[in-house]
């Protein structure tokens, strides 16, 4: 399996950074996932070969990290923090609002596969709570109105 030139480049530089090949594993898996959409069997086998590990060992690692997935998720991945600092500032309401707005529950995707909604642990936005992460973007000091704006904007973008 070949990845994009950019990712191949990243891989070949990165392996030179560590004394063991498998050390590239965790970040590489994340990059592959970003590019492929999920850590497919094929991708797992490929990275296993390159790092001289068994597929099992790679799966063991993948299943440990909560950001790594073997199945594709939505194009827009809404990860709402409900941990304590956010909870104190109404994260439950924010999460409920997202559910209603998207019409889906926790860890569910919209039928068109565009949106995924997920409750997550602390994302490091405690002083700007409540917060969510959309793909790798932080959205902070959330209000229901801000969420509407965000989602509507994305929907509009998709329609074009």
């Amino acid at each position: 399996m070949k990845f994009s030139d950019q990712l191949e480049q990243r891989f070949s530089t990165m392996v030179t950074h560590y004394p063991t090949k498998r050390s590239v594993l965790v970040p590489m898996l994340l990059y592959i996932q970003d590019e492929v959409g999920a850590l497919t069997d094929e991708a797992i086998h490929e990275i296993a070969q390159r790092t001289e590990l068994s597929d099992l060992e790679v799966r063991n690692v993948i299943s440990y990290y909560s950001m790594l997935r073997t199945r594709p998720v939505g194009k827009y991945n809404f990860q709402v923090c409900t941990n304590v600092s956010c909870l104190l500032r109404g994260a439950d309401d924010i999460f409920e609002h997202c559910k209603k707005k998207l019409g889906i529950g926790n860890k569910e995707s919209t039928p068109d596969g565009l949106f995924l909604l997920e409750e997550v642990e602390c994302i490091g936005a405690c002083s700007w709570a409540p917060a969510l992460m959309m793909n790798y973007e932080f959205h902070e000091n959330l209000t229901p109105a801000k969420i509407d704006e965000l989602i509507d904007g994305l929907k509009k973008k998709e329609e074009q």
Partner: peptide, 28 residues
């Protein structure tokens, strides 16, 4: 030499010895 390295979602990996495991490409 200085290199950057990314985790992939695991609080426990902040614990120093788990951090090393993670950096070595293992479960934390």
């Amino acid at each position: 030499d200085i290199f950057t390295h990314s985790g992939a979602g695991a609080y426990e990996v902040g614990e120093e010895s788990a951090l090393m495991e993670s950096l070595e490409g293992k479960r934390g």
